[in-house]
């Protein structure tokens, strides 16, 4: 074996090693475990181990669970794995101003702590928007959500 073919083999081998590293980052399914957020189901499955540390919880706002207190300073809702009834869900108490798109059935990520009373206290609320963009339906201007927001307490039973 001449020294130049040997060098090429070395280079090829090293590039394969590097490629394997990148491929494992991509497809090694590591991401499923090292998450930006947990779903309520995953968090509840941990039982008491989830109490205490600051964690991020992600899911959708369960329909019919949205409640403001009278002065609109506190907000409570349930975050569920999916918007199907019966999906695992966690009650969340938030003191953060939600962005304008916040509503029932929308994806959210809340940062905070979970405790023994089975309530998630959040100090940071992020709306997780889907990749869909649509114009308003004919007859309901882009301001439509404002009407649903102005009477949220009434609407949420």
């Amino acid at each position: 074996m001449t020294s130049s073919t040997r060098n090429r083999l070395f280079a090829l081998g090293a590039l394969l090693v590097a490629g394997a590293g990148l491929a494992y980052v991509a497809f090694g399914n590591i991401g499923q475990n090292l998450v930006f957020y947990w779903t309520p189901g995953e968090m509840l499955a941990q039982g008491s181990k989830a109490y205490g540390p600051t964690i991020r919880l992600g899911g959708v706002v369960q329909p019919g669970s949205l409640r403001w207190d009278a002065a609109h300073t506190h907000l409570s809702f349930r975050v569920a794995d999916t918007d199907q009834p019966g999906a695992p869900s966690v009650p969340v108490l938030s003191s953060e101003t939600p962005p304008q798109m916040f509503r029932e059935r929308i994806g959210v990520v809340v940062e905070g702590t979970f405790d023994r009373s089975q309530t998630f206290t959040s100090s940071r609320l992020m709306v997780n928007h889907s990749n869909e963009y649509r114009p308003p339906k004919p007859g309901d201007g882009p301001d439509k959500w404002k009407t649903t927001v102005s009477a949220p307490t009434a609407e949420a039973r």
């Binding site: 090293a14 590293g21 990148l22 494992y24 980052v25 090694g28």
Partner: peptide, 15 residues
């Protein structure tokens, strides 16, 4: 994850 970054860095560095 750390191991795959090791492979990546060492492979590229070697070349």
């Amino acid at each position: 994850l750390l191991g795959s970054f090791d492979l990546l860095y060492w492979g590229l560095g070697f070349v």
